[in-house]
Amino acid sequence: MAITIEEVEKISRLAKLTFTDEEKLKFTQQLSQMIAYVEKLNELDTENVPPTYHVVEMNNVFREDVVKPSMPQEKVLANAPAKKGGYFSVPKVIAQD
């Protein structure tokens, strides 16, 4: 299955990444190869096989609704490149057009 430039652009947009035209071209080839590799799985007939959601045979792992102390704010913000008044500060995100 061949991956098109448009598909690469869509994926990069979803990932909020920008690439040069050269890179995009390279990725169409690399992604196509990856898909082709995984396509092999389609040779198997899985019609009547339920999907495996989890590799361990386990269910219903719960915790009780008990509040425990959280991290102190300084620690929470310790690795933030920018902060203000206890908040993380990030580049403005509303307008995208």
């Binding site: 929470v76 920018a82 203000k84 008044g85 206890g86 908040y87 993380f88 500060s89 990030v90 580049p91 403005k92 995100v93 509303i94």
Partner: peptide, 12 residues
């Protein structure tokens, strides 16, 4: 008011 023009503040 305390948010500058070019930033967004995040509370988790």
């Amino acid at each position: 008011e305390f948010v500058s023009k070019n930033e967004t503040l995040v509370d988790l």
